[in-house]
Amino acid sequence: MRVARIIARMNVGGPAVQVTGLSKALQQAPGVQHVLITGQVGEDEQDYLDAHGRGVQVLRVPELGRAVDPWDDAVAFARVTRLLRRLRPDIVHTHTAKAGVVGRAAARLAVPRARVVHTYHGHLLHGYFPPAKTRAVIAVERGFARGSAALVTVGAQVRDDLLAAGIGRPQQYRVIPPGIPPLVVGDRATAKAELGIDPAAVVVSFVGRLTAIKRPDRFCDVVRRVAATTSAEVVFLVAGDGSEAAYVRQRAADEQLPIQMLGWVEQVAPVFAASDLTLLTSDNEGTPISLVQAGMAGVPAIATDVGSVREIVADGITGLVRPTEADDLAAATASLIADPVARRKLGDAAIEHTRRFTTDALAAAHLELYRQLLGARGGRPLSLLR
């Protein structure tokens, strides 16, 4: 089985974590030839493959980046088309919006007999674009969905949102939850001390890209409210970077907010080892990998009720899921800052809840899907693919 996986860029984030783990697992699977086709990250981004991509077979198409540029997109399409003609994959699997367009269009031209799969790690239906542009995105996605053998979503709510927008048919969809390597964390007091934080302080982490959709402004609002209402020593630890990083730094300085900025970090384990809580303030998500990682570390999450967050955080059991209002998030955060017993109970439950989100399960689900698709095509016998 020959698999070509296409993603626009491997910037630090959930899709890159999953694609890297999946690529490594499938390269080791008997009878599978796997290659990853990707572009370059932006100047304000870090390439996840630099730190974690050792062993992944990668073909670079520099023009296959995030920004929409007619010339670069045309060049990317031509280069991906040539690569697919050379590779002759049985499966072309695209990830994220831009690669979904370029990769699926190239597959139609270069390898019309290949089975084409697209994964939605989230969607662009809410919070990204003005209404007119959102309608255009939906129209494009509807068109490419018709030519896809299967559509994968990382959560059931993401699937339901896409179906409600008229993208694809129910029978095309497969929900495959995220899978990541186990997260091993050390002692919390030691981890805090290594970051220069008083071990007695309560640490609330924010792990992710600092971009508009993640609502760092809302995060700062929560910090301000919590700092004004709690007598405990609290440090809000931000691991990530992006276009809104300067905004967060400026607000922290102007309002004297207890925020410590780490920038990009190659390993998130030390961050979660130091965390008593983690906070997600986004307007839109798929299934946030940072919340899976937090759960593996025994860190309860306070998260906005968006996307498939509830499929990662069980409200009142492994964390708290709240509306997108800063007041609601601040109240939930303050309540857990004041209650270490509740934090411990939620954290222990989170460890158990996240045990199922493994790379092995992710790879097994994808292999099963590919074999079903190739069998349905009437191609090579499945015995040759095992």
Rank of each mutant, 00 (worst) to 15 (best):
P89R: 07
S290A: 14
H126R: 15
D305F: 02
L163F: 12
F272Y: 00
A149W: 11
V234H: 01
V226L: 01
G242K: 10
L124I: 13
P15F: 01
G166W: 12
A193Q: 15
S383K: 13
R343L: 02
G179S: 00
L373W: 06
R9L: 13
Q293M: 04
V175T: 09
T358Y: 13
G263P: 08
T324C: 15
A107F: 00
V41F: 09
G147K: 08
V41N: 07
R169I: 05
G298N: 01
P258C: 11
D187P: 06
R9G: 14
V175P: 13
M10W: 00
V306P: 11
I138A: 11
D69N: 15
L83N: 11
L320D: 04
L36E: 01
T20D: 04
I91A: 08
R146E: 03
V313T: 04
E368Q: 15
R2D: 07
T281Y: 08
I289G: 05
Y247D: 11
Q40T: 12
L64Y: 01
R88H: 12
M296P: 02
I197N: 12
G240S: 14
C220L: 00
A132T: 10
L277W: 07
R60E: 06
T318N: 09
F77G: 11
L373R: 02
T287R: 05
Q267K: 15
L124K: 07
G379N: 09
